[in-house]
Write a protein that binds this DNA or RNA. Sequence first.
DNA 1: CATGAATGAGCATTCATTCAT
DNA 2: GATGAATGAATGCTCATTCAT
Lengths: 191, 191, 191, 191
Amino acid sequence: MPRSKKILEQIKNEKKQQILQSALELFARKGYHATSVDQIAQKAKISKGLIYNYFKSKKDILLTLVNSLFEQMDLALPQVKPSKLTEEDIERYILTSMQALEQNPQNIKLYFMLYMQPDIEELVKPLVENYIDKIVNFLSPYYKSRGIHEPRSHILSLIASLDGLSLHYILLQYPEYKEIIKTIIQKFVYI
Amino acid sequence: MPRSKKILEQIKNEKKQQILQSALELFARKGYHATSVDQIAQKAKISKGLIYNYFKSKKDILLTLVNSLFEQMDLALPQVKPSKLTEEDIERYILTSMQALEQNPQNIKLYFMLYMQPDIEELVKPLVENYIDKIVNFLSPYYKSRGIHEPRSHILSLIASLDGLSLHYILLQYPEYKEIIKTIIQKFVYI
Amino acid sequence: MPRSKKILEQIKNEKKQQILQSALELFARKGYHATSVDQIAQKAKISKGLIYNYFKSKKDILLTLVNSLFEQMDLALPQVKPSKLTEEDIERYILTSMQALEQNPQNIKLYFMLYMQPDIEELVKPLVENYIDKIVNFLSPYYKSRGIHEPRSHILSLIASLDGLSLHYILLQYPEYKEIIKTIIQKFVYI
Amino acid sequence: MPRSKKILEQIKNEKKQQILQSALELFARKGYHATSVDQIAQKAKISKGLIYNYFKSKKDILLTLVNSLFEQMDLALPQVKPSKLTEEDIERYILTSMQALEQNPQNIKLYFMLYMQPDIEELVKPLVENYIDKIVNFLSPYYKSRGIHEPRSHILSLIASLDGLSLHYILLQYPEYKEIIKTIIQKFVYI
DNA sequence: CATGAATGAGCATTCATTCAT
DNA sequence: GATGAATGAATGCTCATTCAT
């Protein structure tokens, strides 16, 4: 079962899940504006009106998806004490994250879509900042113990690299993809 | 008596630039779909109808902007023979590119917007692929001469890192930005 | 609780008829292009948007009207075996048809409008051809039994005469109308 | 030289002729509403603005064409004293008229288009009525001398038949066309 | 005379949202 | 809860007409 479904299951109501799942697929495939509420309803096999029992607007659906996405990303962080992190833990974390991307590009498309959706930018910004801080805090002890006294910008550049790779993967799907992950891991993890 | 052809041509070009500039600002700030032709016209201080004297559709405006963006990016490539590239050339190229981003974030927003616009994805993909190939070809001799026999994935990961950083910069504008550029340069250029 | 399917179906059909009736009147009075969807909606006392719940385009409304027109014309054919047709049957058929024209000139205006609408000409042509063939087949036995061995062109000239008269009637409404029908019947039926 | 050109030549101004000729072709091919002033200008190889030096509106162009059409139809009447008309004169007149249709279907398309253009119907009606009266007056002596005491409705049915045939010819172009003309002549002329 | 840039009203169509049932 | 008919504002685009040059 893909990770995204797990998260959506936390939302008890089955209808609501159907709506969110349908919206996610359509938003990722066609974009937010190009997806109509009608299409979401049809894909979810419910009536258009019912959507407004669960969500107060189309944008509300998007925001719910976003929150669910960030919850899911939180859960993906390894369950290890930061002070005990090893190279292998980090490598595994990166590989797992990138695998999630391959298996479920919809979520990542959604994630990037948010960057470009200026009318919700302000809502997403704190979520992204918070998530980045979490990763920085999580990885800092490791880099400090390896002699990097100001690891923040180091970690930020790692995240940027992975985000950039994800972006390229979605548009271009070039075959060197796995190779590049390795390159990034070598440059940023084993130091 | 009709106006001379030269003057007409000039007026036409100025108007066209006006429209393009207005559209760029609005597309970057609000997104392509959320920007109406009417808004572009108002910002350019012309009537809606006139836009269609210069562009055959809203999409045509976008594509013109995209093409101009890629032309600009081409021009930013250093005018040096690839075989004679030095570390400093590449560093300078990266710094200049990132400076362009700071000075003109609209263009980059437009660039990323294209990744998320499924209905034009197909039009942009070849442009991006072509541009990436250009950079790869341009930088390959340098990396080969430094002992990297398959430099393609190495260069791709550099581009991904810079793209990722640009993306973060647009949304987050974190203060470590300059620091991260340096980190990336150190990891990917001086090897 | 949603409305029962039967009731919904009924509402739908009534609304559809309302729209079609309004469109027919306007198309006949002002022409297809000179009639706006807005005007149809106003005449049908519904909102413009609702029209698109029932018809996928303005042209779709026109085509529905045209099909219904040809269905009506089919029904007007006498329910007699062609081989048993008498002079009186044909005369009655012609008189009934022309009476329908008097009572409902809109339909005939629509019919002629199609001849002049180059963008739908191709759609209507087969309908007209098919209808003409039907009449030719229907009347042929009668004329053959009266010694006309190649009745097709004879029947075609009858149809042309009636169409021409209808056309004149619509524009000119001259008082000799009934007289002319008689003349045509005498010349083409009683032979 | 086709007859229509001759008529248009009476209008001295060459530019005006160009406009009218272009408009005629476009109106006949695409319909009045579907033809833009721009297209007329392009076909006439002049600027859009110049059209308004010669005609005060698009509709004015149409009306000028209509008047020219009726003038031309007047000229086509045989130059024989009505009292001296023979069967052969009438037959020749009908054959000539129908030949004109074959050679220049544009004019006839325009003629029928007028029937369907309700906003100019009122302007055309007197022209048509006048023309019909002319033919009636012209042919009446012939029919009277053949024993038809009220020839008006007889002549009207002849005109209707020919108009109906013309209409069919334009849309359907069936091969029996020539045959039908003969049938009509036999029924309406040789009595 | 001649041009074509410019306007503004109008058009078909879409769609998020509401609401009676 | 559930439906889908209905609304109305918005959108991209067209085009007859005007007018400065």
